[in-house]
């Protein structure tokens, strides 16, 4: 294993089961996946709905314990205890309307990871929130607003600011632009691309849209029915991807 892998999956898989004990139905959401995500790189994960990409993202964050195989975060096997990892991992999700707790002011939401880690005074929080909001292209004064006063694009920016406030080593972006308008999507894609390059955290960018994935990511992983079919540098996905299914995805965007 290269020394700089922030998250590593070792033959990790997830099986969901449902129904009463005498009539269990099980479903392999993730088959068997090996994946290293290194410091400073964005791995794109593309696949259709139901292909298991969101579940895989949750496994990488330790939110979903794998049914088999192992997850290594920051080089150590993840044992279910988040204490050591507080503020190290972050996620930005799909729905702008649910990105922020509607009862909290924007500033409180952005500062939450610091509060959880128990670092900084109130004044330090406020200062850092201002810096983060400006970094994602918003005015620092937005900290005093409530989420319902913000547009969808602004809320996603705030969610990104919150995710980066503790200098995390790994961030999952799960379909972060799919609910946004076309012209706003481009803003957020550029923001993620620029900030990742500047901050150097490892990232997993999940989307059903190959065009968005290959634009943001350094490497692209294609997922189908719970397995990664192909993983290659994104340049390959501008040319001729190896797997027939990847080519099918590519055909859909050209």
């Amino acid at each position: 294993m290269p020394a700089d892998a922030v998250v590593s999956l070792r033959s990790a898989g997830v099986t969901f089961s449902s129904g009463p004990p005498w009539d269990r139905e099980s479903l392999d959401a993730v088959g068997t996946v090996d994946l290293d995500i290194h410091r400073g790189e964005t791995v794109g994960l593309v696949g259709e709905s139901g292909s298991g990409k969101t579940t895989l993202g949750r496994v990488c964050l330790g939110m979903q314990p794998p049914s088999r195989g192992a997850v290594l975060i920051d080089g150590a096997p993840f044992d279910g205890h988040r204490g050591r990892l507080r503020g190290r991992l972050q996620i930005v999700g799909q729905h702008p309307e649910w990105a922020l707790n509607p009862r909290l002011r924007v500033g409180t939401s952005v500062a939450e990871p610091m509060a959880i880690m128990g670092i900084g005074t109130r004044a330090e929080h406020r200062k850092r929130v201002g810096v983060m909001l400006e970094m994602v292209g918003l005015e620092a004064s937005l900290a005093g607003r409530f989420p319902h006063q913000l547009s969808g694009g602004q809320r996603q920016r705030v969610a990104i600011a919150r995710s980066l406030i503790t200098d995390p080593s790994f961030v999952v972006f799960d379909e972060v632009v799919s609910a946004l308008d076309m012209s706003v999507q481009a803003q957020i894609l550029n923001l993620i691309k620029d900030i990742q390059a500047a901050q150097g955290f490892a990232a997993l960018f999940i989307s059903h849209d190959l065009a968005a994935v290959r634009y943001v990511a350094h490497r692209v992983a294609v997922m189908l029915d719970g397995d990664i079919l192909e993983i290659a540098p994104s340049e390959r996905f501008y040319g001729r991807p190896a797997h027939p299914y990847s080519r099918q995805l590519q055909a859909a965007i050209t």
Partner: peptide
């Protein structure tokens, strides 16, 4: 919702999740 997931991933304690994000 995404803000609960974000808080959880950040390492929030159960009381924080319940009292700050869910109850209100």
């Amino acid at each position: 919702r995404d803000y609960v997931a974000a808080s959880r991933v950040s390492g929030a304690s159960l009381p924080r999740l319940l009292l700050v994000h869910l109850l209100p």
